[in-house]
Simulated assay, not measured.
Amino acid sequence: MDLSERHALIIDRLRSAERVDVAELARAIGTSEVTIRRDLEQLAEQGVLRRVRGGAVSLLSRGEGPPFVFREVDNVEAKRRIGAAVAGLIQDGEAVVVDGGTTGLEVARALAGRRVTVMPLSMQAAGALANAAPTRIIQAGGEVRPGELAVTGPLAEAGLRALRFDTAVLSCCGASAEHGVTAYDPADASLKSVAISSAARTILAADAAKFARTAMAVVAPLTRVDVLVTDTAAPPEALEAIAALGIEVHRV
């Protein structure tokens, strides 16, 4: 089991038990206690947990998703395919707002070097688009969320409301025909909602895992989405329900 897999397992244990024990984790993962202690120290530095004698306790609230550094290495190939497919739906000359998150980052990477105007909603995506002429970048304002490096808040929303885009590319924390598009952070959900209202078309980029989750904050009903791009592992019954709403669905 590699580093990212161990960290993901530790986070899953913290979500269910709120406290983990070094010896128990070492047995479950099949590694040494020294390795587990090192993993816990790394996670503590990233604000995921607090070290206590013999283990650690969670610092993640129930409304919080996994940190960006772990999502970035999760389902990477599927997210790259989704990013390329979304970029393929965007025409040269378009004005596009690209959401934060790991899937939004892959969309930004796929658009880099294209003749488009992009407002990225994260520093991660802005970095992927930088120095990629003829791509034009309009930087969003707002508060930058630590770790995630996504922008949120009134300044970011005002910047979006002042512009009109051909396409808004959204990422999400959860998606379903019943509960719509959801996010863990209410400020993030609010910004996504403004992005939808500022664009003529909305593309939702979501890997298969998103259809098994419903996060705390509602972004919008799925009827506000025009196109869904996902991967081949997405559950067919969920996609059928989404397509029944009149949404164009792409599996890549």
Results as ranks from 00 to 15, higher is better:
residue 23 A to M: 05
residue 23 A to P: 01
residue 23 A to G: 11
residue 23 A to S: 13
residue 24 E to C: 00
residue 24 E to A: 08
residue 24 E to V: 05
residue 25 L to Y: 09
residue 25 L to P: 03
residue 25 L to W: 04
residue 26 A to N: 09
residue 26 A to W: 09
residue 27 R to E: 03
residue 27 R to L: 01
residue 28 A to N: 09
residue 29 I to G: 04
residue 29 I to Y: 05
residue 29 I to V: 15
residue 29 I to W: 00
residue 30 G to I: 00
residue 31 T to A: 12
residue 31 T to K: 04
residue 32 S to H: 01
residue 32 S to M: 00
residue 32 S to N: 00
residue 32 S to L: 00
residue 32 S to V: 01
residue 32 S to K: 00
residue 32 S to P: 01
residue 32 S to Y: 00
residue 33 E to R: 13
residue 33 E to D: 14
residue 33 E to G: 15
residue 33 E to P: 02
residue 33 E to K: 05
residue 33 E to C: 04
residue 33 E to H: 03
residue 33 E to M: 09
residue 34 V to H: 04
residue 34 V to F: 03
residue 34 V to M: 09
residue 35 T to G: 09
residue 35 T to C: 11
residue 35 T to F: 04
residue 35 T to V: 15
residue 36 I to V: 15
residue 36 I to S: 06
residue 36 I to W: 08
residue 36 I to Q: 05
residue 38 R to F: 14
residue 38 R to W: 14
residue 38 R to A: 15
residue 38 R to P: 05
residue 38 R to I: 12
residue 39 D to W: 06
residue 39 D to M: 06
residue 39 D to P: 04
residue 40 L to P: 04
residue 41 E to R: 13
residue 41 E to M: 07
residue 41 E to N: 06
residue 41 E to K: 11
residue 42 Q to L: 11
residue 42 Q to G: 02
residue 45 E to P: 09
residue 45 E to A: 15
residue 45 E to G: 10
residue 47 G to P: 04
residue 48 V to H: 08
residue 48 V to L: 07
residue 49 L to Y: 02
residue 49 L to T: 03
residue 49 L to C: 07
residue 51 R to G: 11
residue 52 V to S: 14
residue 52 V to D: 15
residue 52 V to L: 15
residue 52 V to C: 13
residue 53 R to A: 10
residue 53 R to F: 10
residue 53 R to V: 10
residue 53 R to D: 08
residue 53 R to I: 07
residue 53 R to Q: 10
residue 53 R to K: 08
residue 54 G to L: 13
residue 54 G to M: 12
residue 54 G to Q: 13
residue 54 G to N: 12
residue 55 G to C: 11
residue 55 G to Q: 07
residue 56 A to S: 12
residue 56 A to Y: 05
residue 56 A to H: 09
residue 56 A to N: 08
residue 56 A to C: 13
residue 57 V to E: 12
residue 57 V to R: 06
residue 57 V to Y: 03
residue 57 V to M: 05
residue 57 V to H: 02
residue 58 S to L: 00
residue 58 S to R: 00
residue 58 S to F: 02
